[in-house]
């Protein structure tokens, strides 16, 4: 899994590329959290256009980051999930927690 992080003002955009499973999550979680803390981020955007696979480990990653940014009074958005990703995002109720576009 490749991760690219871009920060503009208080918006942090994380571009993920590859397969988002338990193996990948353990590697990228800390990188995102560190940046959230460093940059006093108010909005986290997770761009998933490059994610080709995701299981419930990805749900854990998303909910964990959502809780973190929410505790700082911020918000989170998911962008460009594929149809198969959308299926698992919806069945987990993530679409009730944040905007998916």
């Amino acid at each position: 899994m490749d991760i690219t992080i871009k920060q503009e003002n208080q918006v942090l955009t994380v571009y993920l590329k590859g397969e988002l499973d338990h193996h990948a999550v353990s590697k990228i979680k800390d990188a995102i959290d560190l940046q959230i803390l460093k940059a006093s981020v108010k909005k986290l955007v997770l761009d998933m256009s490059g994610v080709t696979f995701m299981d419930s480990s990805g749900i854990g990653l998303i909910v964990g980051r959502y809780n973190r940014i929410k505790s700082f009074g911020g918000s989170m958005t998911i962008k460009n999930p594929s149809q198969s990703l959308l299926k698992i995002l919806k069945m987990s109720g993530i679409d009730q927690l944040m905007k998916i576009c």
């Binding site: 999550v25 979680k29 299981d55 419930s56 480990s57 749900i59 854990g60 990653l61 909910v63 964990g64 698992i88 069945m91 987990s92």
Partner: peptide, 14 residues
């Protein structure tokens, strides 16, 4: 503590 979503069996079932 490992941020497991607890959705594993639900996903398998679904």
């Amino acid at each position: 503590e490992l941020e497991r979503s607890g959705m594993g069996f639900s996903v398998m079932e679904s």
